[in-house]
Simulated assay, not measured.
Amino acid sequence: SRVGSVSLKLDQKALEHMHRHKTGALIEAAVQLGALASGRAGAEQLAALQTYSRAIGLAFQVQDDILDVESDTATLGKRQGADIARDKPTYPAVLGLQAAKAYAVELRDQALDALRPFDAAAEPLRDLARYIVERRH
């Protein structure tokens, strides 16, 4: 973000805080509301789903930042490098591209691990976690 003409540089912790309260909060709310609406989720399941949704929320943003660097404009649906051009803080800028990719995979694995207590009925959630990190647009 900018204050006047001075760019504010964020570290990883600050970047995560920003995204947990932005995109991540929407994803977390969707997962939690779905679980609550089922009428079958207890406290342990809700906690596991919160861990899952927080991980995929961050993974989504990390992958989005990676795609801004790697994807072409036609595939991405916005101008490639638009985030960088706007001096928007991104995970590749903070961590480096390869470390950002590794972090996205780590977050996916955290999400999948959080779903261990669930049976095959949670497979769509597992598929979503995989898709978020594998997507190309």
Rank of each mutant, 00 (worst) to 15 (best):
D87Y: 07
E70G: 06
K9P: 06
R116K: 08
K101Q: 15
V69Y: 07
Q63C: 06
T75R: 13
H137D: 14
A35D: 08
L125G: 00
H21S: 11
I27K: 00
P89Q: 09
L95T: 02
M18E: 07
L36P: 07
L97I: 09
Q80Y: 07
K13D: 08
D72A: 14
D119L: 07
E44M: 07
A121D: 04
T90V: 14
A121C: 02
Q61N: 10
G42Y: 09
V105F: 02
P124G: 05
D127N: 09
D119V: 10
S71D: 13
R2V: 14
Q32L: 15
L36E: 13
A41G: 04
A74T: 14
A99K: 06
H21V: 08
K88A: 12
A120V: 14
L107C: 04
A43S: 15
K88D: 10
V105C: 03
D119Y: 09
E44C: 05
D113Q: 14
G81H: 10
Q50W: 05
L67G: 05
E28V: 11
L112P: 00
G34P: 00
P117I: 07
L33R: 11
V105S: 02
A120K: 13
V3T: 15
V31C: 10
A29R: 15
L58K: 01
I66M: 08
Y91Q: 02
K101C: 05
T51Q: 13
R20Q: 09
A37Y: 11
Y131I: 08
L76M: 11
L115D: 00
E44D: 13
E28G: 13
V69W: 06
E28H: 14
V133E: 00
K88L: 11
V31K: 00
L46Y: 08
A30R: 04
V31G: 02
V31Y: 01
K9H: 12
A48Q: 06
L128E: 03
I66D: 08
A93M: 10
L15M: 13
A25M: 10
K13M: 02
R116C: 03
G96W: 04
L67C: 10
A111Q: 01
Q12K: 04
R116I: 06
L46S: 10
Q63P: 03
A30G: 09
Y131D: 10
I66V: 13
V105D: 02
G57F: 01
A43K: 14
R136P: 01
L76Q: 12
R130G: 04
L36G: 09
D109I: 04
E106M: 03
R130P: 01
R20L: 11
A129F: 01
S1K: 06
H17C: 08
A48W: 02
G24Y: 01
R40K: 12
D87K: 12
K13L: 05
L36H: 12
H137W: 07
V69S: 06
T51N: 07
L46Q: 14
Y103G: 00
L36K: 14
M18C: 10
A111C: 03
E134N: 09
E28K: 13
V31F: 00
Q98N: 09
F60E: 01
S53K: 02
A129E: 00
G57N: 03
S53E: 05
A104R: 00
S71I: 07
S1C: 09
L8N: 09
D11F: 06
L115T: 06
V62F: 03
Q12E: 14
P124N: 05
E123Y: 03
